[in-house]
């Protein structure tokens, strides 16, 4: 049986009209932007299922753009996100896609950075404003955003996980959940650590210095 907070029921405070099509969409895009973590030149949204058929009526487009611009689901500027993207010089495109066997409210976001790098992230809005990021650059993951979240994109080398655990232990960070995802042994991998505590800047710096690390993402819980 799932664990609930009273504020899952009396909440979230959000911009309407739909917790799944608006609030959840903003949250998916906000987390995706945090994972990409670089100045964005272009964001392409590939809409799947119910997202692709009803996205304008529910303001899903505005919510997705808002998230990519760094707004959380309760940000009153969400209705004006097209203008915000323009002032931030972020190019936006919406396309339809069939991702097959995923939740009906799913979006694939492809980022193009100002530095020329790209990243592809898939996320689903699974109801009541709750979300799940299910893929980063074709590696299957599971990220909810309900906890303070640390994500490493790294090379799958022995000792990496132990190094990170040691650093977190040293800063007294209590790990709620920790998962490692990879495609092939020794190649690109993703580690997701969900924690009850905000992770101290010094701990993040220590992790950043690890050799196997390609990219580090950290964001606080989004309610």
């Amino acid at each position: 049986m799932e664990n609930y907070s009273i504020f899952d029921i009396i909440g979230p405070a959000m911009i309407g009209p739909s917790s799944s099509h608006t609030a959840g969409a903003a949250k998916v895009a906000y987390i995706a932007r945090s994972i990409f973590g670089k100045p964005i030149k272009k964001a392409t949204f590939y809409l799947h299922g119910s997202f692709s058929t009803t996205y304008k009526g529910h303001g899903t487009d505005k919510a997705l753009i808002a998230g990519v611009c760094g707004m959380r689901p309760d940000d009153p500027r969400i209705p004006f996100s097209y203008e915000k993207a323009k002032t931030m010089n972020i190019e936006i495109q919406f396309l339809k896609i069939n991702l097959d066997d995923v939740h009906p409210n799913t979006v694939k976001i492809v980022f193009e950075g100002v530095d020329g790098s790209t990243q592809s992230i898939i996320g689903s809005s699974i109801g009541g404003g709750k979300v799940k990021i299910i893929s980063i650059d074709d590696i299957d993951v599971a990220i909810t955003g309900s906890y303070a979240t640390l994500i490493t994109q790294h090379l799958d080398l022995p000792g990496f996980v132990a190094d990170i655990s040691q650093i977190l232990a040293k800063y007294h960070i209590n790990i709620a959940f920790m998962k490692v995802f990879r495609e092939t042994k020794g190649e690109n991998a993703v580690m997701v650590i969900e924690s009850d505590d905000v992770i101290h800047k010094d701990a993040l710096e220590k992790i950043s210095a690890l050799d196997a690390l390609n990219k580090l993402t950290f964001f606080e819980a989004i309610h």
Binding site: I10, G11, P12, G16, T22, I78, P79, G129
Partner: peptide, 10 residues
């Protein structure tokens, strides 16, 4: 698209 509290849903 104003601000509300989902209780339990929007």
């Amino acid at each position: 698209m104003g601000q509300i509290v989902a209780a339990p849903t929007a």
